[in-house]
Design a protein around this nucleic acid. Structure first.
Length: 150
DNA sequence: GCCAACGTTGGC
DNA sequence: GCCAACGTTGGC
């Protein structure tokens, strides 16, 4: 089983909203590196749910991958913010996965706290200039971060 | 294939 | 709202 971290703006989808809905489609990823990671995911993989572009950026909880990657329907929807004129049903370059809520942390693990952990130096999230919204997490990094959540 | 211009991300 | 850093686009 692999571990990941995925970013979401809480205004779009927060861990609380995911907890309410149970299972949602994680769509709108429009970066090839991030998309490639989506395609590497397996059912049962777990990921840290990161809140970005908000008053308290950080890891808010854990969710689980419920489906393998499939073509992202928002790319074909003219009414969607994520519509891509180049995408067709036959040739849709973008992928989505379904995810299930697993755990909401009692407190958000703030970005500043994560940056203080020497053991997380290699995590792409804390590297300067990194904007990747889907990234792998090693088992060691996963354990360190779980240890920060009380 | 280079690279300048542009748009986006995301913390602050 | 600002702006650094990055990815993408498109002219050449």
């Amino acid at each position: 089983m692999a571990y990941w971290l995925m970013k979401s703006e809480p205004d779009e989808l927060s861990i609380e909203a995911l907890a309410r809905q149970g299972e949602v489609r994680w769509d709108g990823v429009r970066n090839y590196q991030a998309r490639n990671f989506l395609r590497e995911m397996s059912v049962g993989d777990e990921f840290f749910f990161y809140h970005s572009s908000c008053p308290q950026p950080g890891i808010a909880g854990i969710a689980r991958i419920a489906t393998a990657a499939y073509p992202d329907p928002t790319a074909l929807d003219p009414d969607s913010h994520y519509f891509d004129t180049r995408a067709t049903a036959a040739k849709n370059p973008w992928s989505a996965v379904d995810v299930v809520h697993q755990r909401t942390f009692r407190h958000v693990l703030e970005l500043g706290l994560l940056k203080q952990q020497a053991a997380l130096d290699e995590l792409q999230l804390v590297q300067k200039g990194s904007r990747l919204s889907v990234m792998p997490v090693t088992p060691e990094q996963w354990a360190v971060i779980i240890g920060l959540a009380t």
